[in-house]
Amino acid sequence: SEEELEEFAKEVLRRGITIIVNGIRITEVEIFVKVLREILEKR
């Protein structure tokens, strides 16, 4: 749901943790923004 997305976004921003994806360091915020864009483009 959109509320869950908002909560996830807030949690990500609070933690600001960097994770490893395919050997490249990407912040969770960047991943969230990318996923959010993909979701919005599909609408």
Rank of each mutant, 00 (worst) to 15 (best):
R37Y: 04
E30V: 10
F8C: 05
E11M: 07
I19C: 00
V29N: 00
I26L: 06
E3Y: 14
T27W: 08
F8E: 00
A9I: 15
E7D: 08
I26H: 04
L40V: 03
F8Q: 01
R15K: 11
I26R: 02
K34R: 10
I17R: 03
L36D: 02
V33T: 02
E11D: 11
E3R: 13
V12T: 06
N22A: 09
I19M: 01
K34N: 08
E11A: 09
E28W: 08
I17K: 06
F8T: 02
E2M: 15
V12C: 06
I31A: 14
A9M: 12
G16T: 04
E41V: 06
I24Y: 07
E4N: 10
K34P: 00
I39F: 14
T27Y: 13
V33W: 07
E2Q: 13
I19S: 00
F8L: 09
R37N: 05
E30Y: 09
V12M: 14
T18N: 08
V21Q: 03
R43G: 09
E30C: 00
G23Q: 04
K34F: 04
R43I: 14
I20H: 07
E2W: 15
E28T: 15
I26M: 04
G16I: 12
R14S: 13
E2F: 15
F8Y: 10
R14Y: 04
E4D: 10
I39H: 05
R43K: 12
K10W: 07
E3G: 11
L40S: 02
E30G: 11
E28K: 10
G16R: 00
F8K: 00
V29D: 02
K34C: 11
I17D: 11
L36G: 00
E41H: 10
R14H: 07
E6F: 15
S1C: 06
R14Q: 08
E4I: 13
R43H: 14
G16D: 06
E28L: 10
I19E: 00
E38I: 08
K34M: 11
R43F: 15
E11V: 04
I31E: 15
I26Y: 04
E4Q: 11
V21W: 15
V35K: 04
I24S: 03
I31C: 07
K42I: 11
V33F: 06
S1K: 09
T27D: 07
V35C: 04
I31L: 12
V21G: 01
R37E: 02
G23W: 12
T18I: 15
G16E: 06
V12A: 07
S1G: 08
E41G: 09
K42L: 11
E6A: 13
R25Q: 11
G16A: 10
K42Y: 09
E38S: 08
E2R: 11
L40M: 09
V12H: 03
S1T: 12
A9P: 02
S1H: 08
K10A: 09
E3P: 07
R25T: 13
V29C: 04
A9L: 12
R15N: 09
I39M: 10
K10E: 07
E7F: 08
